[in-house]
Nucleic acid binder design. Sequence first.
RNA 1: CGGGAUGUGGCUCAGCUUGGUAGAGCGCCUGGUUCGGGACCAGGAGGCCGCAGGUUCAAAUCCUGUCAUCCCGACCA
Length: 567
Amino acid sequence: MKASQLFYPTLREVPSEAEIVSHQLLLRAGFIRKNTAGVYTYLPLARRVLRKIENIVREEMDKAGGQEIVMPIIQPRELWDKSGRWSLYGEEMFKLGDRHKREFALGPTHEELITTLVNADVHSYKGLPLLLYQIQNKYRDEIRPRFGLMRGREFIMKDLYSFDVDDAGLDVSYQKMHKAYQQIYERLNLKYRVVQADSGAIGGKESHEFMVLAASGESEIVYCTLCDYAANVEKAVCSVDQAVRTEEESRPLTKVHTPGQKTINDIVEFLGIPKTKQIKTLMYSADGELIAAILRGDRELNEIKLKNTLQANELFMADEAVVKEICGAGFGSLGPVGMPVRIYIDLEVAAMNNFACGANEDDYHFTNVNLDRDFTAYAVADLRNAVAGDKCPCCEGNLQMIRGIEVGHIFKLGTRYSQAMQATFLDDKGQEQFFVMGCYGIGVSRTMAAAVEQNYDENGIIWPLPIAPFQVIIVPVNINQADQKAMAEQLYQQLTANGIEVLLDDRDERAGVKFKDADLIGIPLRITIGSKTLQENKVEMKKRWEKESFLVDIDAVIGTVHDIIFK
RNA sequence: CGGGAUGUGGCUCAGCUUGGUAGAGCGCCUGGUUCGGGACCAGGAGGCCGCAGGUUCAAAUCCUGUCAUCCCGACCA
């Protein structure tokens, strides 16, 4: 491809709408343009990258037994009524009507559609397992689209759905996908981590997320430095034996006057009691019922864990006025002693003694509080967020934190959708059974953005070789010099003939402009043709990710490029 | 949906407080000089100042409404 022919409008300045690196660079380098919030046009360079990602995904899906199909974007309401998700998905779905006033949705995901499809045409266990996938635009009317391609309202996703005869079959399909996903991220050449994930209200028992590691990632991940354990903080287990047991004797409960002291820090200062000897009491409304969640003073509540423990559908922090009425004190003065609602305590708290807490009376606290003697817990559960330094739940190692971008997510769905959609087959005993399903997504466009978040410098993008829009860029310093132009053409032809994707910057621009653009769009390998080196029958080569360039004999160019690209 | 901010040529922004009919840099076009890290000189094109009302002799500027975009939060297979 000749740069003079390529549509890649680069920008010198950062468009003001872009906050994060991938958004800024993809805009500046002429990969994407915004149409409306969360909706983008992919220009030629982006299209090339997306295709490469898609092809790697496609190959691995096929290798794992997947078969590609394409499902419609427009889906009728009835399908979604069947699964109950028309209202459940609610606002997040783009909805539209036709001229007959029939209602439709732009597909945010395709479980309903594919379950219907498979149910219509697979009637026997002999047709299973069946793995079908597509790479397609998805539509979600995000409350707040942001970060460019990271959280768009229209995005490209690969979604595969597995259909099996039973749970054992699902396990096999799930493992296949798990492995295929690892292959994919290896091949994309991205640093990533697989983590245990919360499967959400709708998911099944098991779920893993694939995280591309990047400082700007939205998700927090904990991982063990010794073993393979890794999990989304939402999910990370804080096991019992992490709790520091205190061996001291129980001391008598004491009520202390603490005028105006509300926060944990206030008590640290006022009473000289460390955070780790205090507890905090958080009030929640769970499906309308007021409950108390209790944690050590320095810990953070994990709402997802609490929600799962309570098996609540709706959970939000209680209104202070309500709390005051029922408990007799405001937020800063609460405690479990005499608390008139159900008390859920964190595992760690169960191991503490002689701690301090609010007395359910403004301006008073208790010290030397002890579980069972002074109050009883309705349940003890893992409720807090893991933090760096926690003991690994699987081994003797310690946990560390890192940030990541969720680019893949796999779920065991079980029979949730097949039951809702009444999708069945006959097993080998002639019994009617529900399909046992799994679903497996990869955010293709998000993966492109994540690759940028992970690979850039002050000059622009540094594409990993497997997904670079071009592998090599040839820059003749001055295209008006006949010998440079001729050499550029010659190398371009030769490299192209050798199956290498080359961009020839044949524009009549100054060298600086061409270098800047080459760096910005992130082509991994640059070949510079200048008059001095040309006289010595050499060209200059530079790897985008390295600082120094090096000279190569013209005869050796093909071989050198080959070595670098195909390693 | 709450809180905050912003809408002025393709991009980044100034002008708005104290109304008098629009500017800079970059980009773009033409000519010339340049030519290994976003050149220089000269000339030029391009904006009913997001939109709709209102106040006023007069509105980019003041007022009201509205739309859009961005950030924080709530939300989130």
